[in-house]
Design a protein around this nucleic acid. Structure first.
Lengths: 333, 333
DNA sequence: ATGAAAGCGCTAACAC
DNA sequence: GTGTTAGCGCTTTCAT
């Protein structure tokens, strides 16, 4: 015996109405007499009818699902955004197709294409940078998109961020105010890392304002993982640096632990500031000082913005900048 | 000008073949003459045709998407599984609809229903326990499901786990061997926490084998988050306990940090073992000893199992038990 | 307030 | 090897 799917047609027959009427009650269309509505609802209940979203999607050209491109779910920065995205999506009756991209341009294109073929109503992209090719594909598809925690020069597409440059500048200023002149800037590859150029600008600006010469040797481009943070310690120490601003939380914890392994006292002998305020930053000893972007909100606001675009609502500003905080905890004096 | 979607029909017309032929080449059906295949492929390229997966789903009754119910993407234990799931899903050309459930039974049912209405080909469930209601819904839907890192009494449904009981027992035995008699068992609510009963059994068994009387006061049911771990320290210390096995990594780090805040030396004065080996466990000082389930693999194998079920392949064993390790690092002697 | 009918873009017999 | 045709389950005019 095969699974016998019951359709809107079955409901219509049992309730002695037309498919159209059933469709109306299922979709909450007010143009139905309360009595018939009840009758239909009863039959739906009795038959245990469940609307087929695929058929609906084909007929209406709306799937109520959005695609989410994420570098890696396992990265707390991105998963925090993803949580905000999903919550708001759920609130607006959307589902999320999540796809890991590993920041790999090829995978991104591929993922984008399968999302488009699945007829997602919109896309939220998280990643470091939108390549030319990706942008073209997106534009051509005419599918609404918003970049969550991702900077793009194109002001036409939606995006939600904080002011990375100023945040970075302020963080460095704290370090300078605490007496440091030799401050490391630790990031992933400057070419491919999310907002690293803006952050670097902020770093430079702070130095300049303080009259401290910029030294390229103080910039460390390393892989963005915990291990790399632990490892870079030696180079940082060898360069006689006494403070650091770190663009990634895992790296920051790695650095912190590496420092303590070498008996360097934080914050007495070395100060550092992380950049994302993922929950990791609260799990170290000493507790990490950090720039604190509203992670969940960046995701939530992104999704909200996307719903507006999908609804063709008027939008004042496509590039939203959310406020951040500077959480000075125990890795700064 | 509206977005003019290009359909299989357009391609057929331009290539002077029938829709069926286009469908064949799109689906890699071998019954097409190479020459016509090329012709069709050229037209597809030229027209930039993209198959509509929704239409295909309606016609074929397969959506090549699976639903993934996750308590919280932001939890590294689950997101690690999710990563394994997505990778294998991608490998088998499936996409993932991810939905956060917050372990909330009501949300779970709701999520399950929307997944079913979206006609997912299968479901992967992560969570603490499958409630009666949830199980009924699942069974009724006849949609293939597998439980990833989730125990269920029902041996009919697919599931992938490690032997939590034995793992727990072995971990406790290590603690006992190191001279401890007063060992805390720290978990979430015993009623609702994933495998906590099995783990507790293992704990009891180890004590019994060592002739150590079981004391209910040594069981701590606390919320599963970092903060709760930090907080429980006081109670643990007050109870004169000298070691702990902790079912959650965040809690374990919290405990460890709380201990160090009270100047309790780990592992000299206190030993502890975490249970999940999420990447958190490597980020503490001292580095956490832990039971090490193959997180990624649990996800990957779950998805692989699901593909088999969806394909109606023969399956020897629905309940898969994967091997684990015991990683004794720095929080044990 | 309700119904009839066309069609969304594709797959899957079946025929040739 | 290729074409014809009938749906898949629903939404959406357009009538009434």
């Amino acid at each position: 015996m095969e699974k016998q799917t019951i359709t809107i047609y079955d409901v219509a027959r049992e309730a002695n109405v037309s498919m159209a009427t059933v469709s109306r009650v299922v979709n909450g269309n007010p143009n139905v007499k309360p009595a018939t509505r009840k009758k239909v609802l009863d039959v739906i209940d009795q038959l245990d009818y469940r609307p087929n979203a695929v058929a609906r999607g084909l007929a209406s050209k709306k799937t109520t699902t959005v695609g989410v491109i994420i570098p890696d779910v396992t990265n707390l920065y991105f998963s925090s955004l993803a949580r905000g995205i999903d919550d708001i999506a759920t609130m607006y009756k959307y589902n999320i197709i999540l796809a890991n991209s590993d920041q790999n341009n090829h995978k991104e294109i591929q993922v984008l294409n399968t999302l488009l073929s699945k007829q997602v109503d919109g896309i939220i992209y998280m990643g470091n940078n939108v390549t030319e090719e990706l942008r073209n594909e997106i534009v051509r598809s005419k599918t609404p998109i918003v970049l969550a925690g991702t900077i793009d020069s194109d002001q036409e597409v939606g995006s939600v961020n904080i002011d990375y440059k100023t945040a970075s500048k302020e963080a460095v200023e704290v370090l300078i105010a605490n007496g440091h002149k030799n401050i490391a800037f630790i990031t992933g590859s400057l070419k491919n890392t999310f907002a690293s150029d803006l952050r670097l600008e902020g770093y430079k600006e702070a130095l300049e304002l303080a009259g401290i010469p910029y030294n390229e040797k103080n910039i460390f481009e390393i892989p963005l993982n915990y291990q790399a943070g632990e490892t870079v310690v030696e180079r940082v120490l060898a360069a006689n640096l006494t403070a650091a601003i770190v663009t990634d939380d895992e790296v920051a914890i790695g650095l912190l632990n590496g420092l303590s392994d070498k008996s360097v006292k934080v914050p007495d002998d070395f100060e550092l500031i992380a950049s994302n305020n993922s929950k990791l930053t609260k799990m170290s000893r000493p507790v990490l000082s950090t720039i604190a972007p509203p992670l969940y909100d960046i995701g939530a606001v992104s999704m909200r913005l996307l719903t507006k675009i999908m609804n063709k609502e008027d939008i004042n500003e496509m590039s939203i900048t959310l406020p951040y905080k500077l959480e000075l905890r125990q890795t700064t004096k």
